[in-house]
Amino acid sequence: MESLVLTIPQVRKIVLEAAGLARKAQFGIGIEAVYRIIDHLGFVQLDTNYVVERAHHHVMAARIPDYQTEWLAELCEDGSIFEYFTSASGFLPMHDFRFTLPIKKAFKAQRKPLTQAETNLMKQILDRAEREESLTVGDFENDRVEASSGWWDWRLRAS
């Protein structure tokens, strides 16, 4: 079998084409382009940390002229895409939903039953969310007994 040797410019061209960055509006324009990008890439990671805007919106804005951030929510609402968490949270095309079912089934089978305290806390949170609608982690009292063990469980309070 003969090996194929590519130059750096050839590799760059292949990667940019595959990432949807080779040409302006490579996937088209409008909300349909958002779906085509997610379908092509297979997964667009959500990122809650941001300075200018959340990272998944950067992915779209870099590829779609006049991108509107609400388009992702609209595609979720109409059932074209869904949000799912594996090692990271992201958007996937709905036709891939079936591939998440074995993972969900395994998690459910391995999960320990909730304690009464966990059930009570969940009910309190859901009841409050239903009454107040828009809540953030900072809206809840910080009753932590021990200090944070890392960046993933910091509790920020709005001043």
Rank of each mutant, 00 (worst) to 15 (best):
F140H: 08
K108S: 15
I38N: 00
R98G: 03
E2Q: 09
A73N: 11
A33K: 00
D78K: 09
K24H: 12
N142L: 12
M1T: 10
L101Q: 08
A73V: 03
D127P: 02
D78E: 10
W151G: 10
D96E: 09
A62Y: 07
Q10S: 04
G79H: 01
S149M: 10
M60R: 01
I31V: 08
E130V: 14
D96V: 06
K108N: 14
R128I: 04
R128D: 05
D47E: 13
E83K: 11
L114E: 14
V34D: 00
R157I: 13
V59I: 14
P102H: 02
G30A: 04
E83W: 05
T48D: 11
L75A: 05
A117V: 15
Q110V: 11
S149T: 13
W151L: 15
R128Y: 09
D139Y: 09
M122P: 01
A33M: 00
L114P: 07
L101C: 05
W154H: 11
G138F: 04
L75T: 04
G20L: 02
V34L: 03
L156I: 10
A106S: 15
L101D: 03
A158I: 08
Y67R: 04
S134T: 14
R131A: 06
E74H: 05
M122H: 04
G20A: 04
P102D: 02
E2R: 09
E77Y: 00
S89E: 12
A106C: 15
I64W: 00
N120V: 10
A19N: 07
P93S: 06
R131P: 00
I64G: 01
R36Q: 14
G90A: 07
F99N: 13
M60N: 02
A22K: 06
G20D: 01
F97V: 02
P93F: 05
G79A: 00
V11K: 08
S149P: 04
M1Y: 05
S159W: 05
Y67E: 03
I14C: 04
F97H: 03
G42A: 02
W71M: 08
I31E: 03
L72F: 05
F91W: 08
M94C: 02
G150D: 13
E53C: 11
A33H: 00
L6I: 01
D127R: 04
N142M: 11
R157F: 07
E32D: 14
D153I: 08
L101A: 07
R98K: 11
F140W: 13
S87E: 15
E130S: 15
I103C: 08
A22D: 07
D78G: 01
A22Y: 05
W151R: 10
V59R: 01
P113Y: 12
A19V: 06
E130Q: 15
T115N: 11
R12M: 06
Q68D: 14
Y50T: 11
Q26A: 10
F43C: 00
A19G: 09
P9K: 02
S80A: 11
T7S: 12
E83N: 08
A55N: 13
P65C: 07
R144L: 07
A73G: 13
E118S: 10
T119Y: 06
G79T: 00
A55F: 09
A55V: 12
D139L: 13
A18S: 07
Q10W: 03
D127V: 04
H56Y: 13
Q68V: 15
K105N: 10
I8S: 09
L6D: 02
D66P: 05
